[in-house]
Simulated scan of single mutants.
Amino acid sequence: MAIEAVKEYFRQYGREKEIREFAESSATVELAAQAVGVIPARIAKTLSFQGETGCILVVTAGDAKVDNVKFKAEFGLKARMLTPEDALAQTGHAVGGVCPFGIKNPEVKTYLDISLKRFDTIFPACGSSNSAIELTCDELYRYSQGLKWVDVCKNWEE
């Protein structure tokens, strides 16, 4: 199970027991927000795209939408999301639980969108469709092994 891989990943930081597992689904931003008890914007959703040489993960705020023009300016290619099968093959996590932790393929590159920076803490999934962990943006950057903060989203500005 992917959540087991994420728990094992967080064990190195002593944080595996902080992963929350819910009785109900948290597979969408809205369901995750209900399960955690926060506004949808504080859910850190992880989107998987086809890069030039493999998978690109972009972690964004729950209320943000990818802006194709910004995405192309940042990455030099059109935003093409992976199929659910390809996302699972690249990350080891099924859609609804995709996260930047415990990634199956070490070639996957992770970026964090600045839409997250307006919150003290956010809640990314942990490899299953009913899990999350509360992290600061700095912790998310560190634990996700993020390459850099990017500005590739729209419709989130306050």
Score class of each variant (00 low, 15 high):
D138E: 15
G127W: 01
K109M: 15
G92A: 05
A132N: 10
N130Y: 08
K109D: 15
E139I: 01
Y111V: 02
S128L: 00
C137E: 15
T136R: 07
G96I: 02
S128P: 03
D113W: 03
S128N: 05
Y141L: 15
D86P: 09
Q90Y: 15
G96Y: 08
C126H: 03
L88W: 11
R118P: 01
K117I: 14
P106N: 12
S115P: 03
N130V: 09
D113Y: 04
C99E: 02
F123N: 08
S144F: 00
A89Q: 12
T110I: 08
L88C: 12
F123M: 10
K148L: 14
N130T: 09
T136N: 08
N105V: 10
I133T: 01
A89P: 10
P100H: 03
L112M: 00
S131Q: 01
V95S: 07
Y141V: 06
F123W: 14
E107C: 14
P84Y: 06
G146E: 04
S128A: 10
G127P: 05
A132E: 09
A89K: 11
T136Q: 09
L147M: 13
S128E: 08
K148A: 15
A89T: 11
N130I: 07
I122C: 10
F123T: 07
C99T: 04
T121C: 15
E134I: 10
D113V: 00
R118G: 02
S128M: 01
Y143D: 05
E134C: 14
K109G: 12
Q145S: 15
S115F: 01
A87P: 05
I122N: 01
C137T: 13
R142T: 15
L112G: 03
K104A: 10
E85I: 14
I122M: 08
I114F: 13
P84D: 07
